[in-house]
Amino acid sequence: MVIVRFVGGPLGGLVLERTGPRWPGGWMGLEGGHWGLYRVVHSTPGTLVAECILIGPPLSTA
């Protein structure tokens, strides 16, 4: 399990627990909200810190 801590952008302050291979970063967003392009800026065993580098338009709920 890896814990991803989000800094800035639409997911700023949230924490995600995930399994599987190391997460390289990418587009993340919440339904009805904006997208954020996140990159990993710090990594320790079991924890990643992801910083928002770009914000996209709101996601469609249709």
Rank of each mutant, 00 (worst) to 15 (best):
V4G: 10
V4R: 12
R5H: 11
R5S: 13
R5M: 11
F6T: 07
V7K: 12
V7C: 03
G9Y: 05
L11K: 02
G12V: 06
G13I: 02
G13P: 02
G13K: 01
G13V: 02
L14Q: 12
V15E: 10
V15L: 05
V15K: 10
L16F: 06
L16N: 15
E17L: 00
E17H: 05
E17C: 00
E17M: 01
R18T: 11
R18K: 14
T19N: 06
T19D: 11
T19W: 01
G20A: 01
G20K: 07
P21T: 14
P21I: 07
P21S: 14
P21E: 15
R22F: 00
R22G: 02
W23A: 07
P24Q: 10
P24G: 10
G25L: 08
G25W: 04
G25C: 11
G26A: 15
G26L: 09
G26P: 15
W27S: 11
W27D: 08
W27T: 12
M28E: 11
M28I: 12
M28H: 14
G29D: 05
L30M: 13
L30R: 15
E31I: 07
G32M: 08
G32H: 10
G33Y: 07
H34Y: 01
W35K: 03
W35E: 02
G36Q: 03
L37K: 07
Y38K: 10
Y38F: 09
Y38E: 10
Y38R: 09
R39M: 00
R39C: 02
R39I: 08
V40H: 05
V40L: 06
V41I: 15
V41T: 13
V41K: 04
H42L: 04
H42V: 00
S43V: 02
S43L: 06
T44Q: 02
P45I: 00
P45R: 02
P45N: 03
G46F: 01
G46Q: 05
